[in-house]
Amino acid sequence: MVKIIGLTGGIGSGKTTVINYIKSKGFPVYIADEAGKEVMEYPEIITKINLLFNNEVLLPDGFLDRTKIASIVFQNKELLGQLNQIVHPAVALHFENFKKENATADVIFKESAILFESEAYKKCYATILITAPLEVRVNRVIQRDNITKEEVLSRIKNQLTDEEKAKLATYIVENIDLNETFKNVDQIVNKILIN
C-alpha cells in the first residue's frame, strides 16, 4: 500500500525548494496547486465556474481569467467556498488517477498550500510542515515576487499560522540552512520508508 506524505508550508517557507529536492530523489510528487490549474482548464469546469461568476470571468481564448477570479474570491469568502466545491472534487479525482499511475511507489508526496485548511491531511500517512522565521519568509517573497512587505504580510495573514499547522503536522522542518533542511527531509523519508 502506497504511503501518502502530505507536504505543506506557508508562503516563503521554501516548500518548492524542498519539493524539487524530493523530486530529484526520484519520488513521485503531486502538486495540488498545479493540478488545480490543470482542472480549471477542463471544459466542464470552465462552464461551471463561469456560471458561478455570472459569465464574467472568461478570457477571449475561452479560458478562465484566474487573476480576476482570485481578486473576487479574495474579498468574498462565500464565493471562494463555492469555487472550492467545484475545483476540489475535480482535483481529488485527478489525484486518484495520479495514485494509480504511481501504484508501485512506496511513497507519494502530496504538496498542498492548504493541506490542513482543506483537511486533506487526514488522508495522509504522515505530514511534513516546512517553516521558516517570519522575517526570512517575508524577505524571500519580496525578492521572489517583487512585492511590498505589506502585500506579503497580507497574504500570510490569510493562511493558518505555523503554530496552528504545527499542532496538526507529523514532522516539522525549519528551512533556514538548505543542507540542514535536506538532511532532515532525508531522515524523515527514511523513517517513513522503514515503518
Results as ranks from 00 to 15, higher is better:
Gly10Phe: 15
Ile22Arg: 01
Ser154Arg: 14
Thr181His: 09
Lys123Glu: 07
Glu150Trp: 12
Glu174Tyr: 12
Ile69Trp: 04
Gln82Asp: 13
Ala113Phe: 10
Val141Tyr: 08
Arg140Ala: 01
Gly36Ile: 02
Phe63Gln: 08
Ser154Tyr: 15
Gln143Asn: 13
Ala126Leu: 06
Ile108Cys: 03
Lys25Gln: 10
Glu78Lys: 11
Val185Lys: 04
Thr131Glu: 07
Ala35Val: 08
Tyr21Trp: 07
Glu180Met: 12
Thr181Gln: 04
Val2Ile: 11
Leu52Glu: 08
Gly36Gln: 04
Leu80Arg: 14
Asp177Cys: 11
Ala120Tyr: 15
Val189Ile: 15
Leu93Gly: 00
Ser154Asn: 13
Glu56Trp: 09
Ile188Ala: 01
Leu93Lys: 15
Val91Leu: 01
Glu34Lys: 14
Asn76Arg: 07
Ile156Ser: 00
Asp186Cys: 03
Val141Cys: 01
Glu78Gln: 11
Ala32Ser: 12
Asn102Asp: 05
Arg66Ala: 00
Ser112Val: 05
Lys157Asn: 08
Tyr42Arg: 11
Ala32Glu: 02
Asp65Met: 00
Phe63Glu: 08
Leu115Phe: 11
Asn195Phe: 14
Lys99Gln: 03
Gly81Tyr: 15
Gln187His: 13
Glu135Ile: 04
Ile19His: 06
Phe63Lys: 14
Phe182Gln: 05
Tyr30Cys: 07
Asn102Ser: 05
